[in-house]
Amino acid sequence: MSRICELTGKGRQVGHNVSHANNKTKRTFLPNLQNVTLISDALGTSVRLRVSTHGLRSVEHNGGLDNWLVKTRDTDLSLRARRLKRDVVKKLGETKAA
């Protein structure tokens, strides 16, 4: 399982540990990923995703999962999130047409 947020695409970063003597050794910075269940209002279901805490804050700031998915570009989303976005947009389009 890769260490990438399914909503924001945030992944690991590479940097250095720097000692007091200024020796540098490689290290990785991993995102704070959480397994969460988010509720889709448009679909009326709950969805389990692996999301960074930064992504969770962004979802809450945008007013929920559906709004976040509609506003986000497809290139930033995982395959599961893109499929979910397609379903949400389809469902929202049906409600506006009716």
Rank of each mutant, 00 (worst) to 15 (best):
L43D: 01
G63N: 08
G15T: 15
H20L: 09
K91R: 15
E94H: 08
I39F: 09
V88G: 02
T72L: 01
L77G: 01
L77H: 02
V14D: 08
T45K: 15
S19C: 14
V18I: 15
L7N: 02
E6A: 05
G64I: 02
E6D: 09
V18H: 04
P31T: 04
K96A: 12
G55S: 05
L30K: 14
D76K: 15
R73A: 09
N67M: 03
L56M: 13
S58N: 09
T37V: 15
S52Q: 02
G93S: 11
V89C: 04
E6R: 03
T28D: 07
G93I: 05
T45D: 08
G11M: 06
T95V: 14
L30R: 13
K90M: 10
L56Q: 07
V88P: 00
R83S: 08
L7Q: 03
V89P: 01
K96T: 10
L38N: 04
V36H: 01
I4T: 07
E6C: 02
L49V: 04
D74C: 14
L77N: 01
V14I: 13
R57P: 00
V18A: 10
L92M: 12
R3A: 09
L79W: 07
W68K: 00
R82K: 15
K85C: 02
I4P: 01
S40R: 09
A98G: 12
T72W: 02
K91L: 08
